[in-house]
C-alpha cells in the first residue's frame, strides 16, 4: 500500500504534495477495486487511468446525487464536497493509462470491431484513437467486460447518461456488435 501511495503521490507531487498525499490515502479504498496505477483487476469494475477529468467529475457527481445508481459508488461518494469531487477527478486523470491484454488477439474479431467503430462513428466524439476528450470518456484499453456491461446498460436504459447521447447512438447497435466493439476497444492503446 505504501508503495502505491508513494507512486500516486509522485504523480502530482509537483503541484500539491501534501494535499495529493492526503488524497491518495483517501482514495486507497477506491483502488482496492479499481486497481492501482489506473488498471482494474476486478470483473466489471472499470480501469480509471488517464480518464478525462470532466467525464470522471460528471460520473462521481451523478453517483453522489444518486442519479447514477450503484450502491458501492453511491456510498463511496456520499458526503464528498464539490471540491473533493474535483480533486478526485483531477487525480485520476493523472494516473497512467490502462494496458490492453497481452493475449494473441483474434484478427477477425478485431477487424469486425474496427469496422463497427467506423460504422457507428464512435471515433467521432471519442476521437480516432478512442482516448476521449473533455466530457467524452477515454475508452482505449478499458476492461472488455466493463465495456460490454456498460454498452448493454446504456442500450437497455439500466444506465441513464448525463445526457441523451449514448441512448441515441446505441439504438441500432445489436448485442453481437456490442461484444465485438468491446473486444476491439479493450485492445486499443
Amino acid at each position: 500500500m505504501r508503495i502505491a501511495i508513494a507512486a500516486l503521490t509522485m504523480l502530482s507531487a509537483a503541484v500539491l504534495p501534501a494535499a495529493a498525499e492526503q488524497l491518495a490515502e483517501r482514495l486507497a479504498p477506491c483502488f482496492a477495486c479499481h486497481g492501482e496505477k489506473g488498471q482494474s483487476e476486478t470483473p466489471e469494475v472499470p480501469s480509471l487511468g488517464a480518464q478525462t477529468a470532466p467525464y470522471t467529475l460528471i460520473q462521481i457527481y451523478l453517483f453522489r446525487e444518486k442519479q447514477r445508481v450503484f450502491e458501492p459508488m453511491n456510498e463511496a461518494t456520499k458526503g464528498l464536497s464539490d471540491d473533493d469531487l474535483r480533486d478526485v477527478a483531477d487525480f485520476i486523470a493523472k494516473l497512467p493509462p490502462p494496458i490492453p491484454p497481452a493475449d494473441t488477439a483474434d484478427a477477425a474479431r478485431l477487424d469486425r470491431g474496427r469496422a463497427l467503430v467506423e460504422q457507428y462513428r464512435c471515433n467521432i466524439c471519442h476521437r480516432a484513437d478512442l482516448i476521449g476528450q473533455e466530457n467524452v470518456p477515454r475508452l482505449a484499453a478499458q476492461r472488455e467486460d466493463y465495456l460490454v456491461k456498460t454498452l448493454r446498460d446504456y442500450k437497455s436504459r439500466a444506465r441513464i447518461g448525463y445526457d441523451a447521447s449514448m441512448a441515441e447512438v446505441l439504438q441500432p447497435v445489436g448485442d453481437a456488435e456490442i461484444v465485438d466493439l468491446a473486444y476491439f476497444i479493450a485492445r486499443q492503446r
Binding site: 470532466p54 467529475l57 460528471i58 457527481y61 451523478l62 464539490d82 469531487l85 474535483r86 467506423e118 460504422q119 457507428y120 462513428r121 471515433n123 467521432i124 466524439c125 476521437r127 480516432a128 476528450q133 473533455e134 466530457n135 467524452v136 448525463y162 445526457d163 447521447s165 441515441e168 447512438v169 439504438q171 441500432p172
Partner: peptide, 24 residues
Amino acid sequence: NSALKDAPKSEAAAKLAPVAALPI
C-alpha cells in the same frame, strides 16, 4: 443506421462533440 451516419470522416469533424454542462 448509426445516429451519426451523416457525420463526415474528416479529422476536423472527429474533434466535435456536444459540450457538457459543468456538474458542479
